[in-house]
Amino acid sequence: MSFRGKDVLSILDFSRNDLERLFRIASSRFEGDELKGKVVALAFFEPSTRTRLSFETATLRLGGGYIGFDAVQGTSIAKGETFSDTIRMLDAYADVIVVRHSLEGAAKLAAELAEAPVINAGDGSKRHPTQAMIDLYTVWREKKGIDNLVYGVLGDLRYGRASGSFLRALNLYSPRKAYLIAPESLRPKEELLDTLRMPWEFADLEEVLPELDVLYVTRIQKERFPDPAEYERVKGSYRIDAALLKNAKEDMIILHPLPRVDEIALDVDSTPHARYFKQAAYGVPIRMALLREVVP
């Protein structure tokens, strides 16, 4: 399928073949001026550092220009302009619109209103397709394939959009198994569990660690717990350090969408397991490949 002019709303809009093609482009170290004369709108209604900077970098590396804003201060949204009107305006200015928003489904709405293709850079707590592409790409490169591996997905699997997006993305492949490692109150909603097509199980990190090929770690935010004491009680079970990793397979890799706080100790960074900085670096080539393919 050609992505030209298409919206990128959910990772499930893509097939394995689509992603494979994207991965091959991203890994070909291509350079070019495919976006010369093009304008990318970066509409970040919610703050973000990494995602925004990597879209900016990807645009500049392809010779394109960008317009946009960060959060809502400094735009007329602060004066009460609706999201819909802002999108219509950007549609008139830009060749592609990258949207980040705290409301779920905001990117789909933008896509309905805009002629230009819309790329979802994270809306609400469920979808973040370009992050999922980067995550899959990291596994694809670092493990030479995505199928038949045992995955552990750890952290806030209920409100965290990266973990949910990653799990959904795995549906496109055939993992041997996915272990969901989360405190009870942060387990995925049934909406997500119902869609999982691979064998999965709730699990304890220490128990399943020796089986894992890929450990995907996300942050557990204190604010998610109604009772702070509960947070203090569980947080130790979701912390990774070098000592713990003695029990892991030698070639097990650890991913994290970043930013991390203290769920991964600094002493893990120098182990061969740590791939999260590489993962962050892959954000640029993947978004370059995507922009190159999507922008009309």
Binding site: L103, E104, G105, K108, L109
Partner: peptide, 14 residues
């Protein structure tokens, strides 16, 4: 029923 759903946002074209 999701309060964070864009369809529950006031004044949007949805």
């Amino acid at each position: 029923v999701n309060p964070k759903c864009v369809t529950n946002a006031p004044r949007e074209a949805v």
